[in-house]
Design a binder for these strands. Structure first.
Length: 381
RNA sequence: GGACAGGUGGCUGAGCGGUCAAAAGCAGCAGACUGUAAAUCUGCCGGCCCAUGUGGCCUACGGAGGUUCGAACCCUCCCCUGUCCA
């Protein structure tokens, strides 16, 4: 089937599994490895679209569940799709709502058919199935859709993990079949992609089984889900490496929900191409900023008279202009601007870290970068 | 000058005989946050001590006395604040 979708590898690191690539979509090309800021409800909290463009964000993540509930995917379809609705011209990946099955547990019930849940907004009842999740994501017009999966919390029993992994496999088949059917009924080339999600917790045998199922069904790209939900860091890296190795080299690999700046470097080294995480944006609003010297809880009294920028080694416009003392004051005073400035800085830090990682892979310096990160140095401008 | 009402920890403000070092909120301090029900949440928040505890000691509910086994809570006087009347 003809498609705007294409993934090209441009460089492979000789000593690790790191790779650099180009992800072509109907809304433009994404240089990988890439970090996707999280814009759950059609907005990256604390920062506007034009600002994201200026920071060099090439792809955003948004959320099926949240947009379905509000404003409703039909509203967005009628507005011409999510890109036009939110005035974002670059690629968008939408999560399916699988994560909400876990994070909003207690509001939902998982059955073979799908998820019956009550809205966290008004308590109304809804049903999300693998087919429905695809349908909604097509209505949103996302460039990359995710299959509906069941993401289990950590720790979970082997049985729970296995059952969720197997259910995810059956849902993956249904999502894929439905997606194919809808795309075939449409005129013109396919403008979107659909990714499968490997589950299985930290059990390698389950991960292998899940990966094999996904490969057999066949997707445009593959995600590793259900990590960074509380398991030990060593397991996160270990399972990421193990799972990434099972996935085809010519397809993008997306590690869902990860992670810290160090996680990005460590997981690129294990073969990951795409990341998303709420840390830079959520932590920013909670007065935690990422810097080349580590995390700072900037509202702390120790910065009350600190005239240095958040990160003296950072080139972002916040660091060119504002002091730690001022930003700490903004947090103390409850000023809206506090979170806005911290968000801008954190996203710059993440984007810049990613650019440096990619550059290092291309220039052959990635192993050196990895070594420096492991000894406490984080790349900045 | 008179009549009421009231003075509680940095602030607001509960408590009105023991279970009160004193609710709650705010402020302050420290921290957490990994496909966002999050600009949210958690802990600490008089002092000192052994720092193990349903721990010990000290200081504290405007001031001074008193009643009582026991007072932030009851009584007396004083000081101060607010409202109203002259």
């Amino acid at each position: 089937m003809e498609s705007a979708w294409k993934f090209d590898l441009v460089a492979l690191d000789p000593s690790t599994r790191a790779r650099a690539g180009l992800l072509h979509t109907a809304h433009g090309t994404v240089e990988t490895p890439a970090f996707m800021p999280v814009g759950t409800a059609g907005s990256v909290k604390g920062i506007a679209q034009e600002e994201l463009e200026r920071l060099g964000v090439q792809i955003l993540l948004s959320n099926t569940y949240h947009l379905y509930l509000r404003p409703g995917h039909e509203v967005i379809r009628q507005a011409g799709g999510l890109h036009r609705f939110m005035a974002w011209r670059r690629p968008i990946l939408t999560d399916s709502g699988g994560y909400q099955v876990m994070s909003l547990k207690g509001l939902g019930r998982v059955t073979e058919d799908g998820v019956t849940f009550r809205s966290h907004l008004d308590g109304s009842s809804h049903f999300l199935s693998p087919e429905r999740a695809v349908e909604i994501q097509l209505a949103l017009g996302s460039d990359i859709g995710m299959i509906l999966d069941e993401c289990v919390e950590y720790p979970s029993s082997y049985e729970t993990t296995r059952r969720a992994m197997e259910l995810t496999g059956r849902w993956a088949r249904r999502a894929r079949d439905y997606y194919e059917q809808v795309c075939a009924s449409r005129l013109g080339p396919r403008t979107s992609a659909l990714f499968g999600i490997v589950q299985g917790g930290i059990d390698k045998a389950l991960r292998r089984q899940s990966a094999e199922q996904m490969l057999e069904i066949g997707f445009d790209g593959y995600a590793v889900g259900g990590l960074s939900v509380g398991e030990p860091k060593g397991d996160t890296y270990d399972v990421t490496e193990y799972t990434a190795e099972l996935l085809p080299a010519d397809r993008p690999r997306y590690l869902m929900g990860v992670g810290t700046p160090a996680d990005l470097v460590e997981c690129v080294a294990r073969g990951i191409d795409l990341f998303d995480c709420v840390l830079p944006t959520r932590n920013a609003r909670n007065a935690c900023v990422f810097t080349s010297e580590g995390r700072l809880v900037i509202k702390s009294a120790r910065y009350a008279s600190d005239e240095r920028p958040l990160d003296p080694a950072c080139a972002c416009d916040v660091c060119q202009r504002y002091s730690r003392a001022y930003i700490r004051h903004l947090f103390q005073a409850g000023e809206t601007l506090a979170g806005i400035l911290a968000t801008r800085h954190n996203l710059h830090f993440y984007l810049d870290t990613m650019r440096r990682i990619r550059q290092a892979v291309i220039s052959g310096d990635f192993e050196d970068l990895l070594r420096r990160v492991r000894t406490g140095y984080l790349p900045t401008s």
